[in-house]
Design a protein around this nucleic acid. Structure first.
Lengths: 371, 371
DNA sequence: TTGAAAGCGCTACCAG
DNA sequence: CTGGTAGCGCTTTCAA
């Protein structure tokens, strides 16, 4: 008997005090069906009966078993979120709002955090097994195969903060091209002539679009060249390293646009360490507008991602309550961001033309910093 | 017919292509039980049969329905996390590690984020309905009533980063008293004589313990007085405001211990704004050691919470695989943190006695900062 | 409005 | 090792 290892396992099957609808029925001399109906809003049952049932249920500590219910109804009231980058402060904010929104539509959140090496695709079958009502995937794409699998299962999926140009998979993202353009406008208005762009993950649409919008708008405005610097990922360290490389060039840029705020934070530190003052010697712009971007120590000018709208749109696209117009459900929805000007950018040249030329409104500059 | 509003609902019952074990059985001329066994690791089934089943399953796109399985086995392989403070960077880190650990033990994560006003207690019944295998509650306490309810359901619960002194509910936390003491030691070793303590939420055990450890150790070391300043919550803004109040006192403190890193960041900015240099004029210490504490712009000396150990211990206390010694499972487990010295603290007085007296090893001081 | 009965898709037990 | 047979606790027709 010592040989059996899984001895305690059967013990784990909670053998205990859970009351079923049957128990309530017995106590009340009703049928089990009636108990069920009492807990179904749309069921036809007399008010008094329902009240009696509810009363008895409370007394007995009865709660419908959602698992059993799901087996019948074929939906779990659970929405799955796939989110990899929990360490970047941008994502917890998205997650927070997503969970709140999901709760608002009466669902629960199943969170899946892929391991570093793990492909998002691999986890979908598992999620599908859980019969989730919908899946929100952040910052990852989807192959046409998986799209088909989800479709077959009738499980709606939506991509958040990324999209797949070719595929018809629903996606919501900030309008990164427009964002890049807005930043180009801002920098050119501030008379910068040697801007640099620091990318994150090289292949992400997010990145590419920001860059495209930024560079093309720069061209349109007559700024021919833009220094392109690879970040590698979206981390503080990557931003730090990229900024240092930029600062050590023979011809330094007079402005840097980092594709994420956290990278910009790293950049800020690196630039100061290299003896450059921000914004006097160089302007710095980020992307996302995480809360800390507004802290005085950063004062980062950045493009605010419209997270509330994005989250709202994403959940809406899941169409969990079946009341969507269906016809005009665009495959991918881009939402405009908003430039937030702070103290990390100021105009070049000696003819002050904008209100950002010097630190104003008591908001001090970051220049003294010598890190 | 226009009167019926829930017309489309039945339509949502995915009427589609999901293959069941029965389908696979039919195709293979086997019994449905055998299909089930093929997917049960511990079941007795021949290797060849299992292989055939797996092959056919793949071909048909069959995956066991975990809902149906859960109905039988009475567990869902889901661990619920209740986490309110997603915006404080400390919690995403905890969440990240929790999910990884939960995945490592073969479970999924159901995330519940209570709304601002919502009581944690209120959500437990819902979680219980979902038949989760266990519940991890971060930064919130539990009433004895709920503890009893969970116990009745045989659903293990563990508190993370908080504990209930009276109750016998399993809890894991950083040893905050010891943490407070370590910081007192550090500050006194650096010859500070007018330390201040800035609290977060006034009633949290976390807080109280830090404070207790800090103040009593200070006393032991001969520092009689410690300025106590209320933060109110754990935010940057709260830290900022508290630090400003402290800086505007007639007799300023020569060191401030903020009960969270984010508060300390706010404090750093406030102090600089008030014209104080850190660490030359005043030392600043935080608590948590979030990643950004190590960034040059903060260089925050702080007490590192042993998150990996805490997470590991918490999940272990859930005892999800039933192989715990059971006898020596302490109701509450405190894990020692570790002081991380950076550039926000330095010794007072003119007799350099410790290596922190002046900025060393090329790590520059933060003094130049004038925010 | 209510009760009886038939499953949802699976696991678990019992024979063989 | 495999096939039959009971359910898990609920929702949902179908009659009454």
């Amino acid at each position: 008997m010592a040989g059996r290892t899984d001895r305690r396992k059967p013990d784990r099957r909670k053998p205990s005090a859970h009351v079923t609808a049957e128990d309530v029925a017995r106590k009340l001399g009703l049928s089990q069906s009636t108990i069920s109906r009492a807990f179904t809003a749309s069921a036809s049952i007399s008010g008094t009966t329902r009240a009696r049932v509810m009363e008895a249920a409370r007394a007995l500590g009865y709660r419908p078993n959602v698992i059993a219910r799901s087996l019948m109804t074929r939906h779990t009231n659970i929405v799955a979120i796939v989110m990899a980058n929990l360490v970047d402060p941008f994502y917890p904010i998205v997650l927070d709002q997503l969970t709140q929104r999901i709760k608002a539509i009466g669902r629960q959140t199943l969170l899946f955090v892929p391991s570093p090496g793990q492909d998002v695709e691999d986890v979908l079958p598992m999620l599908l097994q859980y019969q989730v009502d919908g899946i929100v995937i952040t910052s990852a794409t989807l192959s046409s195969t998986m799209v088909r699998v989800c479709a077959a299962q009738r499980t709606p999926v939506v991509l958040l903060n990324r999209y797949v140009p070719g595929l018809k998979v629903p996606a919501v993202s900030c309008d990164n091209i427009a964002g890049g353009r807005q930043i180009a406008d801002h920098l050119v208005a501030l008379r910068h002539v040697r801007p640099a762009f620091v990318s994150g993950q090289p292949d992400a649409t997010t990145n590419l679009d920001c860059q495209r919008g930024f560079v093309t708008r720069l061209h349109e405005l007559g700024v021919a060249s833009c220094i392109q610097e690879q970040g590698g990922d979206y981390s503080y360290e990557a931003g730090f390293a990229a900024a240092r490389r930029l600062a050590r060039r023979k011809r330094r840029p007079d402005a840097i646009f980092f594709v994420s705020d956290v990278m910009a934070f790293g950049g800020l530190d690196a630039l100061r360490q290299e003896g450059m003052r921000v914004p006097e010697d160089i302007s710095v712009v980020g992307f996302d507008d995480v809360p800390s971007a507004g802290w005085p120590c950063f004062g980062l000018t950045t493009l605010r991602q419209p997270v509330p709208a994005m989250v709202h749109a994403a959940i809406a696209m899941l169409d969990l309550d079946g009341d969507a117009p269906a016809r005009r459900r665009p495959a991918t929805r881009l939402i405009m961001g908003e430039l937030v000007e702070r103290t990390s950018t100021m105009a070049r040249g000696r003819h002050p033309r904008t209100r950002r030329d010097q630190p104003v409104d008591g908001r001090p500059s970051l220049s003294g910093i010598r890190i």
